[in-house]
Design a protein around this nucleic acid. Structure first.
Lengths: 143, 143
DNA sequence: ACCTCCTGTAAATTTTAATATTACACCTAT
DNA sequence: ATAGGTGTAATATTAAAATTTACAGGAGGT
């Protein structure tokens, strides 16, 4: 099990943008170098963040900027921008249980209750973390 | 992102065992039919559950039984039996950020704080759900 | 003692999802 | 016009999950 690394790369990009976008033109190839990922991956991540209103970019120019204050950006916002309804499919479920068995017939319905709870809790947990605290952590580590 | 379907299959098996093990000899091929999975998958799941002390099985016979009361089995116990330190690697992290960049150099350390929090919260959430409530849910759906 | 059905694993294969690459039309500043 | 960038689709590569095949051994019936 794993959550794709998009989220980590996005946080990397957001920290980078927050730190340096006032000094240099932040482009996807610059972020690609810093993260070690492919520029196309970066562009698709930036595209998701842009559509979610988290950053702004200038077509043909680059110049990525935060579109919100770091304290108004939650980890959930970021995660959701990259994997819409990723939480809905948190747990894999076996697709073809026997419909002739009482358990098999109802397992999907039964699992919904516990999985909904987990999903809701995880969403709250992700929402509780904001970009500003991660940026603060970055400054702490630097010094 | 996804958590492998092992967890769902395990819950299916545990409900099945709880309901029917007093009446029939629950074997891996019976569970394979009910879940729609391969018997080998079932055996590897049962093997994990057995090592975690959640069920007992008889080599060469089958006869899977719950080894604990359903109220003493949490979803975390089950998850952990199947994917030891799955939570530790919840989030994928890009492997080769540029060490020449202040962000790239420290990103792993910085991400540890938020990811630890999420992991801890998720663990608590998984622990809060016990097998008895899922079995109750099954009975509710049946009637 | 032997046969049958089962377990428990290992190893190889298939399938599926994630990541990377290639390609290209279009934007913008110089 | 051109150089360097974006945005996105399509394809390939890689890595992980799930299945299948294979086989040595346990337990119980006859």
């Amino acid at each position: 099990m794993h959550i794709s690394q998009k989220c980590s790369v996005a946080l990397h990009c957001l920290i980078f943008i927050n730190e340096y976008s006032s000094d240099v033109n932040v482009t996807s190839s610059l972020l690609a170098k810093s993260t070690g990922c492919n520029p196309v991956i970066i562009r698709s991540i930036l595209s998701g963040l842009r559509k979610a209103g988290i950053i702004s970019t200038q077509s043909g120019v680059g110049n990525a900027q935060l579109a919100k204050k770091p304290e108004d950006i939650t980890l959930y916002d970021i995660y959701n921008a990259l994997e819409p309804d990723g939480l809905r499919n948190l747990f894999g479920i076996h697709a073809s249980p026997a419909s002739t068995c009482p358990v098999g017939k109802n397992i999907h319905t039964v699992l919904q209750m516990p999985y909904d709870i987990i999903q809701k809790d995880l969403m709250a947990s992700l929402t509780s973390i904001r970009l500003d605290s991660i940026i603060k952590q970055f400054h702490d580590v630097l010094s």
